[in-house]
Design a protein around this nucleic acid. Sequence first.
RNA 1: GCCCACGUAGCUCAGAUGGUAGAGCGCAUCCUUGGUAAGGAUGAGGUCACCGGUUCAAUUCCGGUCGUGGGCUCCA
Length: 642
Amino acid sequence: MSDIAVSVQDGEPAAVPANSTVQEALSKLLSNKQRKRVVAAKVGDSIVDLTTILTEDTVLSPIMIDTPEGLDVLRHSTAHIMAHAVRDLFGADVKVAIGPSIENGFYYDFLRSEPFTPEDFEKIEARMAEIANQNLPFIRTEIASSDATRAFEAEGEKYKVELIRDLQTDAVSLYSVGGFQDLCRGPHLPNTSFIKAFKLLRVAGAYWRGDEKNDVLQRIYGTAFFDAKELKKYLNALEEAKKRDHRRLGKELQLFTTDDQIGPGLILWQPKGAQLRRLIEDYWKDEHYRHDYDLLYTPHIARQDLWKTSGHLDFYGENMYSGMDIDEVRYQLKPMNCPFHIGVYKSDKRSYREFPLRWCELGTVYRYERAGALHGLLRVRGFTQDDAHIFCRPDQLEDEIYNILELNLHILKNFGFADYDIYLSTRPEKYVGSDENWEAATNALKLALEKKGLGFEIDPGEGVFYGPKIDIKIKDQLGRAWQCSTIQVDFNLPERFKMTYVGADNTEHQPIMIHRALMGSLERFIGVLIEHYAGAFPLWFTPIQARIMNITDDQADYGLEVYEKLRKAGLRIEKDLRNEKLNYKIREAQLAKIPYMLIIGDKEKEDGTVTVRLRDGKNLPPMSIAEFAAKVQEEVQAGRGI
RNA sequence: GCCCACGUAGCUCAGAUGGUAGAGCGCAUCCUUGGUAAGGAUGAGGUCACCGGUUCAAUUCCGGUCGUGGGCUCCA
C-alpha cells in the first residue's frame, strides 16, 4: 500500500500508509503528551473524528481538549452519554430528540411523561460516570437514510425519523457508545475516558424544534469540562453570578420591588432605587443637552387613530394594551414614543435650515410581554426608554450617526462599559422604502462605524422592515453581553405621517428619521448596572454616598450636626446613631455597599472631624466636614465626566 | 401563552400520614456606652398566596386563579 504525506499545520510532513486513521497519523506527528490531549482534528474547515480514514495527503490541525473547539466536542459527547444514561435508567418510555453542545455546556431534549426530579439527576449523573469509566469508544457508522429511518421507526424514535427525513440525504451517520446508538453528525471524542468532569444543572421545558405547536420536551441542561478544576471554576462563576443577580441585590439593597396587587412586570422604585434612577436620568439629560439635544415630554396615551397612522396597530398591535374610551373616542397606551415626537415635529413648518433636530425624552412606554418572558428589571411591561429622534437631511445622516455613536459610547464608558459587540443589520426580505435609500442609509451607518474606528459584524437581512440599524451589546464585569443601544434609520414613519420640510430649492422634501436609545430602557440598564457592579456603585451615582456612625451616644449630637451639614452640602448621607456597637454598624454599612463610612468618636467630636472608612476596609486620616464634602464633590465631578 | 418546580412572619427558610405553626435575621422595649464586619434580655409580628372542593376537621389532599423561578417562544 502506498504512503501519503500527513502534516500538522506549519510542521514537517510524515509519511503514513494510506487508509491510516487520523489517530495513527497523529501518533507520528505529535509527542505522547500532546497526543493524550487530542480529541478530534480539523481538516480544512471541518472537524473530524480521530477514527477518520485518511486516503490522501492531508494537513491536520489537532484539536486539543482544553481548547474551545475541544470543549465543544467533549460537551457534545457528554450529551450523548447523558442520553445513554437516561435511556438505561428510564427505558424506552423516553424518546430522545436532540443534544447539542451550547455555550458553557450542553443539553439534551427528551420526551417523557414523568418529570425529571433532582433525585433523577443524581441517578443520571451516577450512571453517566459508570458509562464514562468504562472507557468505551465512540463508533461512527454511515448507513443509508432509509435503513436508519427503519431502525429508528422500529424503536419509536419519531424525532430521529423526522430529522433524517428533513436532512434529505442518502446516508446519515450514527454513533454508538456501549449499547446506545444515536443519529449524529459528530464529531465525537475517541472514547469516554475524557469525560471526567460534568454536572447536570437544570431541567426546563422546550418545544420540539422551538415551535410551540410541537410537543413539549424536557430539556436537561448540563456542563462538562476537561478536568474537575475547570468545572469547579465554572460552578463558582455561576455562584458569583447568582450573588450579583439584580433581583436579589435589588431586594437586599432596597432598590426596587414589585407587588402582586399592582401586577407583574410593573416596577416600584423604592427610595434608594429612585435616587439611583434620578442620578442616572439627570446625568443623561445633562449630557444630551451638552451634545445639542433638546428635551421633550409627551403623554402616555393617544387616540387609536394615531396608532393606525403609525402602523403600530397593524404591526405591533399584539404587544399593545387594549384601549379605553374617552368621550366615545378610542385611546391607547403608548408602546413607543416616536409618533409623539412626530407630533412635535408637525407643530411647525420645518426648514432644512433648522436641521438636524435632535429631540430626546425619557419616555415611559407599556408593552405586553408574555407572562413567561418577564424577568426582574430586564424584561418588564412598563419601562422608560432613553429615547431620541433625529430628523435630518439625507446628506446629514452619516454625521448624525457618527455623533450618536460618539455620545453613545461616551455615556456607556462613563458607566463603566468599555467592551462592546456591534452589529449592523441590513435589509430584510420584507421592507419599505426604495432600494437606493436603503443602500445610502446602510452605507452611512457603515461609514460612521468605520470613521469611529469600531469593529462590527454585519447581520445580513436582520434589519427591521423600515430601515437598517446598528445594535450595540455591552459586556459586563463577568463578560456577559447585554443588548442595550440601538440606532435605527426609519423610512416608514416620515412617509406614513407625511412629514416634510422645505429645502433650499423651496420645495417640500421628506426628512430622514433616526430612532435611537443608548441605555435601551432605564429598567434594563439599571438591572445590568446592578449586576456589573454587584451593587457597589461608583460614588457619582450610588444612592447613598456616606453613612455617619457614632461610637457611643455621647457623639449623637455631633453626628446629627455632621449629617445636617453634609446634606446641606448636597451629599447623599445617612446616619446610624443607634445605640449599637461600632462593629455592628460597620457590618451593616458594608452589606449596604455604602462607599464611605464616617466614624465619629470623642476625638472627632472634639476636633470637628470625621474618620473615613472605605468599602475595602481601609481608613483615610481624619478630615474636617468641609474637606470630606469637597472630596466627595470632586470625585463625583470626575465620575460624571462632565 | 406553553412545560416543570415553587409560594409558610418584613427577609432567608424549617415543619406536620390532615387536628389552625417554628428558627435565624430584621423590628420594638430594656440592659449595655463598646474605635473598624453580628453584645445581652424580653416582646410584638402569620387567614401558612387567593378561591372552591373532599373531610368531623385543610396551611397540609384535590381543582382552579394569581404570582415567582428555570426554560421554550416572542422582542415590527
